[in-house]
Design a protein around this nucleic acid. Structure first.
Ligand SMILES: [Mn+2]
Ligand SMILES: [Mn+2]
Ligand SMILES: [Mn+2]
Ligand SMILES: [Mn+2]
Lengths: 219, 219
DNA sequence: AAATAAATTTAGATTAGTCTAAAAATAATT
DNA sequence: AATTATTTTTAGACTAATCTAAATTTATTT
C-alpha cells in the first residue's frame, strides 16, 4: 500500500490541479503540504516512479488516471467520515475536518462501504461537497458563489468555499446552513456587500468576501 | 503525541506483563511485535526516556503508571471500535481485529467518547473482553476456561482466549456464542475432551484444547 | 541579448524505525 | 568453578521523510 504521506501528497496535488486547472508547481505543493520545496521534489520522484503523477523536471505535475482515482478514493473516505461524524456522533460541521484527516487513511474496503450504507449513501458531505463513488467518479454540482448573483435573485445554499472553523462558525451565528433559501435584497454599490434574507425570515448584511465563500444555485 | 509504533509497543508490553505477571523480556517483545531484539532494545530506551516503562539493561521491563494508563486507553479504543463494527456495521467477530488495529490509533477524545455513547456504554467487546473506562481503569471479569470445570457443571459463555479468525469461525460453526449456556455432559478420561450441551439444545464434542480457549463462569 | 530574479533540483545531514553482525552479559551445564 | 549456551546490547548500515544550503534551470527585467 501507499504511505500516509504519499496519500496526503496525492490529495494535495488533486486539489491544486482541480483549483488551477493546469500542471501544479513544486512550490504550490510545498505550501499546501506545509513543507519545503526540496522535500516535494523528492516525493514527486517517488510518486512518478509509482505512476501516480506525470512529472518532468521543472515542468510541474498532473495526476495520472491511477493517481486521480487514488486521490478521489481518499476524498471519498474523508467526506464519508465527516458525514458519519455529523450524522451519527453529534459533531458540528466545524469540528469534523481534523478527525477526518486521520480517518481517511484507514484501509478497509468493507469498512468504508458499510459506513456508506449506514449513512444511506449520501451524495454530499456536511459542507455540501460531493462524495465520489466507490470507483472514484465524482459529480461536480453546478453551484456558484453568492457574489455572482444579483439583487432579488432567490438562491439555495449549496456549500462553502472556505472550510475553516472560523468561517463555519460565523455562518452558524448568521443561521446560514446548507439548504437554506437566500434572497438578495440589496447589493451596496460602494463595497459590493450584500443584504440578504435567509429562509424568508432573518435579514443580514454580509461582506462581499463572505458572499464569495458561500456557494448557491438559483432556486 | 506518541507514534503509532510507540503505542503498539506499549500495548504489546501491557499484554505480556498481564499474561506472565512479571517483567517481560526483550525477546518476548520482539516475538510479539514481529521484529528483532535489537530493534526492541532501541525502542525500550526511548520508552524509558519518556517514562512509559521501568527498564534496566538486561533486567526486562514493566510499565509505569503512565505507561499502563496509555496502554489501557489504546485498548479501550480498540475494543470500542470492535464493538462499533459489530453492532453498527455488520462485521462478524472474526473480521474486526485488523481494522481495530488501525482505528485504535486515531487521536480524538471527542470521537471515542461519542462512540462509547453511541454504543450505549458497553462493558465488553465482541469477544467478551472488558472495555477500560476513560481513565484507563479495567474491571477484570472473573471467568475461567471451560476446561477447569467438571461434569454436569452449568456455565455461561463469557469470552475467548484465542482471538484468531479460525477459532472464532469454528465456534460459529458449533453455534457457540457469548451468553450461551454450556453444560458439561461428559469428560472423556483418555484425552480430556468434552461433550457439551449448548443452550439446552445441541450436543457437541470439543477437544480439551478448544475448552481451554473458551472462557465461562458458573451459571 | 545580458543580467537579474525566482523557482526548482541536487547534495549532504538528520530522525525514527528497522536490520545484521559482533560484543557483552546472564543463565545453564558440565 | 569453568565452560558453553542463550539472551541482550552495541555498532554500523539502510529506508522514508524531512531539512538547509548550494547549484542549476527557467522566467523576468533591463
Ligand atoms: Mn474536510
Ligand atoms: Mn468536507
Ligand atoms: Mn482485537
Ligand atoms: Mn476484542
Amino acid at each position: 500500500m501507499n504511505s500516509y504521506t504519499e496519500e496526503n501528497y496525492l490529495k494535495a496535488i488533486y486539489k491544486l490541479v482541480e483549483q488551477d486547472g493546469e500542471a501544479v508547481s513544486t512550490n504550490a505543493i510545498a505550501e499546501k503540504m506545509n513543507t519545503k520545496a526540496a522535500s516535494v521534489t523528492d516525493m514527486l520522484k517517488k510518486l512518478s516512479d509509482k505512476k501516480f503523477i506525470n512529472y518532468q523536471k521543472y515542468q510541474g505535475v498532473t495526476l495520472t488516471a491511477k493517481g486521480e482515482k487514488t486521490a478521489l478514493i481518499i476524498i471519498r473516505k474523508h467526506r464519508l467520515w465527516e458525514m458519519f461524524l455529523v450524522e451519527k456522533l453529534n459533531f458540528k460541521w466545524d469540528e469534523v475536518h481534523d478527525v477526518a484527516e486521520q480517518l481517511e487513511h484507514i484501509n478497509s474496503d468493507k469498512l468504508i462501504e458499510q459506513i456508506d450504507k449506514f449513512l444511506n449513501f449520501p451524495k454530499t458531505d456536511p459542507h455540501g461537497d460531493p462524495i465520489p463513488d466507490a470507483n472514484g467518479k465524482l459529480l461536480t454540482p453546478k453551484s456558484k458563489p453568492l457574489s455572482a448573483f444579483n439583487v432579488s435573485d432567490n438562491c439555495l445554499m449549496m456549500g462553502v468555499v472556505d472550510h475553516s472553523p472560523s468561517f463555519l462558525q460565523y455562518l452558524d451565528k448568521m443561521n446560514i446552513t446548507l439548504g437554506n433559501e437566500i434572497k438578495i435584497k440589496d447589493i451596496v454599490e460602494f463595497d459590493k456587500s450584500l443584504q440578504i434574507i435567509v429562509n424568508k425570515k432573518q435579514t443580514f448584511f454580509i461582506s462581499n468576501d463572505v458572499a464569495k465563500n458561500i456557494l448557491v444555485k438559483t432556486k
